[in-house]
Computed example of a mutant assay.
Amino acid sequence: MEKYYQYSFEEFCDDTYFLRFVKGEDIKCNNDWENWVTTTPSNIDAFKNAKLYLEQVIHPISIDIDYQLQEDNFKIIESKIRGTQKRNRRKAVIYSIVSLAAIITGLLIGLRWYLNDLITIQTSYGETTMITLPDSTHIELNSNTKLSYHRSWKWTNKREVWINGEAYLSVNHINKNPKEILPKERFKVFAGTSTIEVLGTEFNVRNRNQNTLVSLIKGHILFSDIRFKNKSIELQPGDNAIANSNKIDQIPKDKIKSVPQAWTKKEIISQGLTIENIINYYEELYGKKIIVSDLNILNKKIDGSISLNNPSIALYTIANLLNADVTIKGNDIYLTINY
């Protein structure tokens, strides 16, 4: 019974054991409460008021009522109800504010995601595909290549793409006044640590193993790399440039040993490529590993074309050039040279 020394009028009215006492249905309950009253609790008035109130509610007989006491009790109850209503209204306002803040936060998070999220296209080994960007720029992706661009392309006016692998780009020229080039008219390609900036042009970019090779077909481009912050190269049609861990530089035309964009026609056109160059390119495109029985053969140079219509044709063309037997074990291809 200790807890009842702290009870208020409302708590007595809500208590099941107190209600049993008022109903007079339980002798033990009656004894407990009579003994409790003899201890002269400080909240005896709350006890009496609650008992009287419940007796009026429960018993169908007429009893003498202290109307002033009844009025006081009703005022207490009404005051509690108003207090509860105020608290509920206050809670409703707070809930509305919190809900609105949550909605705004959600919208901001969604907007931030939309502005920063990238759409990514990945080609598998032996697969090529053509992509048309929102500005009508066309990009052909070579095998084992990933292209990314902002989902919010149309809203941010940023013509930017990220390429890992090899691609041929035909960039739509949207500049109207060559004397005034707006930021939204520039097209940027990020290839590893390298950046290619153009207005409208056609070029091939190959970014693999931290090496970036750019070959310009039409127009002009500005080529730079964050590893060499103080240097950029402006290329004209027919120019080639490379960026690797050692340098960023233009490649003399007589040093170009292949037609860079030949892959778009499903072939390699060699103008003095070594067997090692060709094998490395094959491995990049098809995800296989070629092991030759004689490493000295890797320095052999060849001229001509190799079909890339499918990996088997390309492989057996290489084998014929080397007069080699082919053994395939999973992803490993063994070329045994015949002398």
Rank of each mutant, 00 (worst) to 15 (best):
1 M>Y: 07
3 K>T: 09
12 F>H: 03
13 C>G: 07
19 L>F: 08
21 F>I: 00
23 K>I: 11
28 K>T: 13
42 S>T: 13
45 D>N: 12
52 L>G: 15
63 I>Q: 15
75 K>M: 03
80 K>H: 10
82 R>I: 13
83 G>S: 11
88 N>A: 12
91 K>W: 08
98 V>L: 13
99 S>H: 08
100 L>F: 12
112 R>Y: 12
133 L>C: 04
138 H>R: 15
142 N>H: 11
148 S>G: 11
149 Y>I: 09
150 H>V: 05
153 W>D: 09
156 T>V: 11
157 N>K: 14
160 E>A: 09
164 N>C: 03
168 Y>K: 02
169 L>Y: 07
175 N>W: 03
178 P>M: 10
193 T>V: 03
196 I>W: 06
197 E>D: 09
199 L>Q: 03
203 F>A: 04
206 R>Y: 04
207 N>E: 14
209 N>H: 12
212 T>H: 01
216 L>W: 08
220 H>Q: 11
222 L>P: 00
222 L>Y: 01
224 S>N: 08
229 K>E: 14
230 N>D: 15
233 I>C: 02
234 E>K: 14
235 L>N: 06
236 Q>L: 14
236 Q>F: 06
237 P>D: 09
237 P>T: 07
259 V>N: 06
260 P>F: 04
262 A>S: 15
267 E>P: 06
267 E>F: 01
273 L>M: 15
275 I>E: 01
275 I>V: 15
276 E>C: 02
280 N>D: 10
282 Y>L: 07
296 N>M: 03
302 I>Y: 11
317 T>P: 00
318 I>T: 08
319 A>L: 05
324 A>M: 05
324 A>C: 12
326 V>K: 06
335 L>E: 04
